[in-house]
Simulated assay, not measured.
Amino acid sequence: MRVAVQWAQPVLRDRLACWLHRPERSWTATVAPRLVALATATDGTRWRTEAVAFTSTSVAVATVRDNGVGGRYMVKVPWTTQAVEGLRRQAEVLDRLRADPSLSGLRPLLPYCAAQGEIEGRYYCVEWALRGAPASGMMLRHSQRAPLLAAAGRAIRELHQRTRERILLDRAAVAEWVDVPLRRLAEFAATHPRRGRLLDTVGRLREELVAALVGRTVHTSWIHGDYWPGNLLATAPDRQVTGIVDWDRAAPRQLPLHDLLHLHVLARRLARGDELGEIVLRALRHGIDRTLDVPAAEAADWLDGIPPRPALLLYWLRHILLFIDSEGDHDAPRWIRGNVERVLANV
């Protein structure tokens, strides 16, 4: 029952968003065929809007189908400043990745922005629709979970291995991963009723992580940055990954463990309904392999020599920094309690 309720929450939230944003969806449905026609230099009557969703990040996503041949495009129209910035950043990231000759094997999995611009003062992006369905639904079926996770791991390792660099972590390098997110957590802690205790925890974590990381040699690479089953497309019969979407949080010179941990942490969240913070705390107490049900050698490979506790804390810090001020999270008390307050109070 808990899994069913947990899975229902985002579904109900998306349906509510669709109901609340009927004008935005209607406007997007009207202009989307015209935008696809412009992007493809074809007759506008050839295209029709099949459906329009409104995401929790305030983007209207129209599926536009060719009346004759059967081709499909996705037209994305962001309706907030943050959503515009995210889509523009994704377009820049995808251009960089597609231009890298070493990543030719990854290109079939990447969205392709066929056109972008403004219409009636609103930014838009037209993407060729990748085949497959969101892997998040498939992950609910126990028989499909392990093969999908294995396929997803292979897909993102192509990015990690082709772009990796070996670096010595000095104080400046560690500052980006430790000091920046901890400063944001200190701002949060300063307004909390248990301010003293939480600020003490922030200071202790900074000392612990700096001691564990400075002077260590690690591999860094490009990472997706939000690599979870909902951002993967897959085919049900053969359980193969056919697309990786939403690249606005991607970044170079990061630890690959972020993608691999996030994939498995969110797969567990989908399967069992646990909050991310709860899973992180369980992994800190009982080990990554036992918590995420992966072989110990595989979990150790993700970490690349970084001890499990600092690795988990780095993963948690990056996730919190990315989402604590994002639309739909920073103002959600349940998200704050489960992913920020609870972890700070127990590490």
Rank of each mutant, 00 (worst) to 15 (best):
H219G: 06
H219N: 11
H219K: 09
H219E: 11
H219I: 00
T220V: 09
S221F: 01
W222V: 10
W222K: 05
H224T: 02
H224V: 04
G225R: 02
D226G: 10
D226S: 14
Y227L: 08
P229M: 02
P229K: 07
P229V: 01
G230H: 05
G230C: 01
G230Y: 06
G230T: 02
G230V: 01
N231F: 06
N231R: 03
N231S: 10
L232S: 10
L232Q: 12
L232H: 08
L233N: 04
L233D: 00
L233F: 15
A234F: 00
A234C: 12
T235C: 13
T235Y: 05
D238H: 12
D238R: 09
D238P: 00
D238I: 00
R239V: 06
R239W: 14
R239N: 15
R239I: 01
Q240N: 11
Q240F: 01
V241R: 11
V241L: 10
V241D: 12
V241I: 15
T242F: 14
T242H: 11
G243V: 09
G243Q: 14
I244T: 07
I244H: 11
D246W: 04
D246H: 02
D246N: 07
D246A: 00
W247F: 13
R249Q: 07
R249C: 00
R249E: 05
A251M: 13
A251Q: 13
P252N: 03
P252W: 04
P252R: 11
R253T: 00
R253V: 00
R253G: 00
R253Y: 03
R253H: 11
Q254F: 09
Q254P: 01
L255C: 06
P256S: 03
P256N: 02
H258L: 08
D259E: 09
L260P: 03
L261H: 10
H262Q: 12
H262T: 09
H264D: 07
V265Y: 02
L266G: 04
L266R: 04
A267E: 11
A267T: 07
A267P: 07
A267H: 05
R268C: 06
R268A: 11
R269A: 08
R269Q: 14
L270N: 06
L270K: 12
A271H: 12
A271D: 04
A271P: 13
R272W: 01
R272A: 03
R272Y: 05
G273Q: 09
G273S: 09
D274S: 04
D274K: 00
D274A: 01
D274I: 00
D274F: 00
E275Y: 01
E275A: 08
E278N: 04
I279K: 05
I279S: 03
V280W: 08
V280P: 05
L281P: 01
L281A: 03
R282I: 01
R282Q: 11
R282G: 03
L284Q: 10
L284Y: 07
L284E: 13
R285P: 15
R285C: 15
H286P: 02
H286Y: 14
G287K: 13
I288Y: 08
D289P: 12
D289G: 14
D289C: 10
D289L: 10
L292A: 07
L292Y: 12
L292N: 15
L292G: 08
V294T: 13
P295N: 06
P295H: 12
P295I: 00
A296E: 15
A297W: 04
A297Y: 07
A297R: 05
E298P: 11
E298M: 06
E298N: 02
A299T: 06
D301T: 13
D301E: 14
D301M: 09
D301A: 15
W302L: 04
W302P: 08
W302M: 07
